[in-house]
Design a protein around this nucleic acid. Structure first.
Lengths: 316, 316
DNA sequence: GCATTTCTCGCTCATATGAGCAGTCGCAAC
DNA sequence: GTTGCGACTGCTCATATGAGCGAGAAATGC
């Protein structure tokens, strides 16, 4: 009889959801009372036979967001749906859009926003609507000006975000990683740089993304690291980088010597922040995402459904 | 504003379908009246942003069935859902199950059921429940006893269906295709064979499947045709075979000479039948399916969603 | 074989929802 | 200006649906 009931619940669901019949009408067709039909329908839902999907680029997955918040202690989680997504680019774009939306609705409005740079952050800047806020000053929180392939993208990102909020952008005029420790110390003590770093430390909110640790890393692309160096970092346990610093799956610095030569705010500063928004999407970034969330490097995560599920599968 | 409304309708849908909030509550969250929320939800549905799927092996697609009936003039159409299907085997199995269900609920119960043989029909016989009907006699409608790889499957199919209905099976003791026309004439005039063929002609319902026209055809497998012969048939426009006869996309016999040597009921007999149930599933059979439905070779089609859509895309 | 527990059914009642309608606003033509 | 049209809003009212309840059936334990 349990078998029969399951089949009946499917027949009822077909009539209810696909033919838009009322439960009473279905009762007529299947020779059941309308209460029985209601129960069958409830059963079909409970068994997971009814799948409802919201197919839209801006759709979010609220239940996943909640589970993420509950499981990880994040202040907030934004999870975009992957339903109907065509490729990695679209996923990235959806996530960036969601980050832009989140930033726009963020209260209190940050007076100073510290940002990193990269493909993702650039996308976010593009998706922000002009006038998304007013009087927000933007400051870069890690180095990396000149060596980029397309020089100036890092700067453009910061400037765009600031401009659209009617605020000023403060750039960090320093490479991401220096070759010698002394040079790094020297540049850090330079007035221009020190002032920016101080401003960055005092930002009321941070927005950053993460890079994977492999030959496609932005650091390799822009010449700060040699592919072999990345391989070596991976061997030591690196899963990716945030604000230029390579971390392992526990969120710890992988190579302290290298890290010492990296210009930008430190991870403990990020951990201490009231609002640190990480924007991460794509299969290849699941490991970094896990590390970041697991070690409290962000208070807010903006990501895609798959990444969120990867984190959830991991944590309990 | 139209942009904003679309986004709002998505937010409303998230809260309604994923968080199970009432429209009133959603109104509270989004600062809208509950009527506005209702309208946004209706809009989201109308725009196709809400996709509801019934995920179950026995799920059917009633709207597609109706469109099929309307577009083709079939008496009945059974379309199984492909949602969550893992492979071709499962699709085949789901379709066979549906055919078995249809047969079980068929009214009036046929006194004599004419059947073909093959993988699909075998599957149907397996899925039929014992006692699915009472007193139904089964008769084979095309030849093909001995040459099979696993001799006896054709017979087993017929016997199983009959047995489970408490009736008798009548086998057609003849090869599917004979090498010489005279032999075919001779065997047809043999009392044993002629009697079966006559019984087949008078069956109150027919149940058959179709084969694709390529090197995987059952006729090649069982040695009735050489792969080259099939290639030649394809060159002449063959899209597949039903009850052993190769047809083109218009449902016409491709090779009259070959057809003359094929033992079984003729296509015009099938076309004249009150109830002729075709069971067809799988990508490779889309062309035959189109031909069969398009040329009125069946009154009832049991198939999968993809095949149904292929037929629908074709017809208007 | 009987008592007890658990399920299931059909119901009442409260609530959620959709249809339809009148009022209002913005806009354009006169 | 004003008059008419169309889109939209917030309402009333009818209907569809879900929660909860008590009676009886079925399963379980003794």
């Amino acid at each position: 009889m349990i078998e029969t009931d399951e089949l009946l619940s499917i027949r009822a669901a077909e009539l209810y959801y696909e033919e838009n019949k009322t439960q009473d009408e279905i009762g007529g067709v299947l020779r059941l009372t309308r209460w029985k039909v209601g129960r069958l329908l409830a059963q079909a839902k409970a068994n997971g036979f009814i799948r409802i999907e919201i197919v839209h680029p801006r759709a979010r997955r609220l239940p996943v967001e909640r589970r993420l918040r509950d499981a990880t202690g994040l202040t907030d989680a934004i999870v975009v749906s992957t339903a109907g997504v065509s490729g990695d680019d679209e996923l990235q774009s959806r996530t960036a859009q969601a980050a832009a939306d989140y930033l726009t609705s963020l209260r209190p409005i940050p007076r100073t926003l510290g940002i990193s740079w990269g493909r993702t952050l650039h996308d976010v800047s593009v998706h922000l609507a002009p006038g998304w806020a007013s009087g927000v000053n933007v400051v870069q929180i890690n180095g990396g000006v000149s060596l980029n392939k397309r020089p100036g993208t890092a700067a453009t990102t910061a400037v765009t975000i600031a401009q659209k909020a009617g605020g000023a952008a403060t750039l960090l005029p320093s490479p991401a990683i220096l070759e010698r420790l002394e040079t790094k110390r020297a540049i850090e003590s330079d007035r221009a740089v020190a002032a920016v770093l101080e401003m960055a430390s005092g930002a009321s909110a941070f927005l950053y993304s993460a890079g994977q640790a492999d030959e496609n890393s932005a650091h390799v692309d822009s010449g700060y690291l040699h592919p072999d160096q990345v391989t070596e970092l991976v061997r030591k346990g690196a899963v990716g980088d945030i604000v230029g610093r390579y971390i392992d799956s526990n969120g710890n610095i992988v190579d302290p010597a290298l890290d010492e030569r990296t210009v930008g705010i430190r991870l403990d500063q990020l951990r201490a922040a009231t609002t640190a928004i990480a924007v991460i999407s794509g299969r290849s970034k699941h490991p970094v995402a896990r590390a970041i969330v697991g070690s409290g490097l962000c208070t807010v995560l903006v990501t895609d459904e798959d990444t969120a599920n990867a984190i959830l599968d991991d944590s309990p």
